[in-house]
C-alpha cells in the first residue's frame, strides 16, 4: 500500500508542485491550504508523513506541528517543514516543536524526494 503524505502550504503552485512530485514518486497525497485545514483533513486519515510550510494564514506551521505532536496517533509521524534561509530562528522553533527535518525553499523535486525517502524510507 502506498504511503500517504499530507502537504500543507498556502501557495497553490507550491502545493501542486509538491503534490505532483510526490505522486510521481508513488505516494498518496492529501493537500491542505493551512494549519486549520490540515487538522480538519488529518482526522481519520492515515497519514505517514506531513510536509508543511511555516508561514501560513489562519494557523502557521509551528502551531500545526505542536498540534500534531500532541495527537497520540501522530506523535511519531515525520514532519518536514519548508523554510527559507532567512528563517533560521523559525527552523529552531520548528525543531523544538517537534519537526523531523526541513527543506530549504526553493528546492528541486529530486531534493524533496530525497528528503522524503530519508524520513519515511
Amino acid at each position: 500500500m502506498p504511503k500517504t503524505i499530507m502537504t500543507v502550504d498556502d501557495s497553490t503552485s507550491v502545493r501542486q508542485m509538491v503534490g505532483f512530485t510526490l505522486k510521481e514518486a508513488g505516494y498518496d497525497v492529501i493537500e491542505a491550504c493551512d494549519g486549520k485545514d490540515a487538522l480538519s483533513k488529518i482526522d481519520g486519515a492515515n497519514i505517514n508523513m506531513v510536509v508543511t510550510d511555516l508561514n501560513m494564514p489562519n494557523m502557521d506551521g509551528i502551531e500545526l506541528i505542536r498540534n500534531l505532536r500532541s495527537n497520540p496517533k501522530l506523535k511519531f509521524v515525520p514532519i518536514i517543514m519548508l523554510t527559507t534561509e532567512s528563517q533560521s530562528e523559525k527552523k529552531m522553533e520548528g525543531k523544538t516543536a517537534g519537526a523531523t527535518g526541513w527543506i530549504v525553499k526553493p528546492f528541486k523535486p529530486e531534493q524533496l524526494i530525497s528528503v522524503v525517502k530519508k524520513v519515511i524510507g
Partner: peptide, 15 residues
C-alpha cells in the same frame, strides 16, 4: 506583505 513576498520568493525558484 511579508507572506506575499515570501511565497513569491519561495515558489519562483522552484519554477
Amino acid at each position: 506583505v511579508f507572506r506575499a513576498l515570501h511565497t513569491i520568493k519561495g515558489s519562483s525558484g522552484m519554477f
